[in-house]
């Protein structure tokens, strides 16, 4: 967090995204300024329809803004061509989606290696990397399974492994626990915690207070604008007992 001020990995200024025209104009993202430092975990929270997913798409180069700037690692990405954007997506960012978005006909390991293959790595290197990543997310024994044979939590872990495949600068996650039960959410949280500890920059859009609570920073969003920022300072309060009223 200390170097967030000098050199943010991700930086947005006056970011806007509008849909429709005239009466039907919707400002999904309306003048967002944001700096995210290397190694930071940032949670964006807000009611559904507040524009947080759109913001994530703009930051990750999945969608183009109507106005404003986005820079990744000091380079503008809002005005570059489709091709450069595609290169950015396969080298600098990784995505995790609410509904996993795995290819049904590919096994876990094939899904993970796909983004490495798209990035032009050799099949052998891509496969090795994919196997390592699956091991890292605790699914080494499920590598040859099709997504349909995996549980929701396992699928999301495969998706996380895929997002990490090309050692991205930033991993973007859009409601990663939205389709998961409590226990599977825990698995994903633990995985994110591990990423955080290894210094991975992580931007998570979520409804889930549990994810938000484990972030370094929590940003609240309403009607396309950032309205509040909370830093949940590090270290535990050491008063866990207070949670169950043990000390009276």
């Amino acid at each position: 967090m200390s170097n967030a001020a000098d050199m943010p990995v991700l930086r947005a200024r006056g970011l806007r995204k509008e849909y429709g025209k005239g009466e039907g104009l919707v400002r999904a993202v309306d003048g967002v300024d944001l700096d995210i430092g290397a190694g930071e975990t940032v949670a964006v929270m807000g009611p559904s329809g507040c524009g947080k997913s759109t913001l994530l798409h703009l930051l990750g180069g999945l969608d183009r803004p109507s106005g404003g700037e986005v820079s990744l690692n000091g380079h503008r990405i809002d005005d570059i061509g489709e091709k450069a954007l595609a290169r950015l997506r396969r080298t600098a960012v990784g995505f995790v989606f609410q509904s996993f978005h795995l290819m049904e006909e590919l096994t876990a390991v094939e899904n993970v290696e796909l983004s490495a293959l798209l990035a032009g790595r050799s099949p052998r290197a891509a496969r090795r990397r994919a196997e390592d990543l699956l091991e890292q997310v605790g699914l080494a024994d499920r590598a040859r399974f099709l997504p349909s044979a995996l549980s929701g939590g396992q699928r999301q872990r495969v998706a996380v492994a895929r997002a990490l495949s090309n050692e991205p600068l930033v991993v973007f996650a859009d409601e990663p626990t939205g389709n998961l039960d409590s226990a599977a959410t825990m698995d994903v949280l633990q995985l994110f915690e591990g990423l955080h500890e290894s210094g991975q920059t992580l931007v998570v859009v979520t409804h889930d207070a549990r994810i938000a609570a484990t972030a370094d920073r929590m940003i609240s969003m309403r009607d396309g604008a950032l309205i509040d920022e909370t830093r949940l300072t590090g270290g535990t309060t050491g008063q866990l007992g207070a949670l169950i009223g043990l000390e009276d």
């Binding site: 091709k83 396969r90 978005h101 798209l118």
Partner: peptide, 12 residues
């Protein structure tokens, strides 16, 4: 769409 999200170009 997924392939593009993972970095394939529109032309690909």
């Amino acid at each position: 769409a997924l392939a593009r999200a993972l970095g394939a170009t529109p032309r690909d």
